[in-house]
Nucleic acid binder design. Structure first.
Length: 258
DNA sequence: ATGGCAGTACCATACTGA
């Protein structure tokens, strides 16, 4: 089984690329972030015609997340329970699979702008609430994946310029400590279970020929629980869609289980 | 030293992203 995550930076604009990617990469579940549309504008029919079920948690202009799956999901949760959050950043669901149900959590983590700002404080609050909630989800669902745009480069090797960008957004100790806390719940960064090319990233700035110069960050992640870890056989970034005309600034990350 | 791209919305310029 394959699970993928992709920040599409507007599903309206990127729908043709999503459909083309799914045709070439018929994953069992695809997490989307930054839909930038409300649920009434969600392109359900086009995705159904492509063979996918979908559940979404949309928002106008900003944020918005969805799961696309080959088979229907159940027990859908939108946003972190108990967190008063106007922004649509979380959708979770359970997918029945061979070997048992898998809890799928998809997050569009807060960007945070810069340390010291209100947005950074919101990011810290949000990360703490996420951690508390994921802990409780893991107790209920041993087979669990947490995927999405984490907006955190966990280590220096996940950044094109760890020295120049030291202590800036995505690189701060506070953000990295939150990422480590998620791992300490018993989650594993699937990408780092395998040898990977040097300078592997999942996001590149549109400006300054960021992709052509491979000036990027690895901020899109797939974390798997202990129960799933033995079945993880591959994990990689698919850079191909970043080369498309009018690309998203993020590339998909794909994990293979079994 | 600064902005540089892209998407969206009160459609001209501001906001956000990372």
């Amino acid at each position: 089984m394959q699970i993928a995550t992709w920040n599409v930076n507007s599903l309206s604009v990127r729908l043709p690329q999503v459909l083309a990617w799914l045709q070439a990469n018929p994953v069992d579940a695809l997490a989307l972030q930054e839909l930038k549309l409300t649920d009434d504008k969600f392109p359900l029919q086009a995705l159904q015609e492509a063979g996918y079920h979908a559940v979404s948690h949309g928002q106008k202009t900003y944020n918005g997340v969805a799961w696309l799956t080959r088979t229907p999901v159940r027990d859908v949760v939108r946003n972190i329970p108990g967190l008063d959050d106007e922004q649509a950043r979380i959708i979770a669901a359970t997918l029945d699979a061979e070997g048992g149900p898998v809890r799928l959590i998809n997050g569009y983590f807060v960007n945070g702008q810069a340390p010291g700002t209100d947005k950074f404080a919101y990011k810290m609050r949000w990360l703490q609430a996420l951690q508390d909630w994921v802990k409780s989800e893991m107790a209920i669902h041993p087979r669990l994946v947490l995927v999405g745009d984490f907006n955190v480069a966990p280590e220096d090797r996940d950044s094109y310029d760890p020295i120049g960008l030291k202590d800036t957004i995505h690189h701060t100790v506070e953000e990295r400590t939150h990422f480590q806390a998620l791992l300490q719940l018993g989650l594993t960064d699937a990408f780092r279970m395998f040898d990977q090319p040097e300078k592997s990233y999942s996001w590149w700035d549109y400006r300054m020929l960021g992709f052509q110069k491979n000036r990027g960050l690895r901020i899109d992640h797939i974390l798997v629980s202990e129960a799933l870890r033995p079945s993880v056989s591959a994990c990689s970034v698919d850079r191909a869609p970043r080369k498309n005309p009018q690309p998203s600034d993020h590339a998909p990350v794909v994990v293979t289980l079994g």
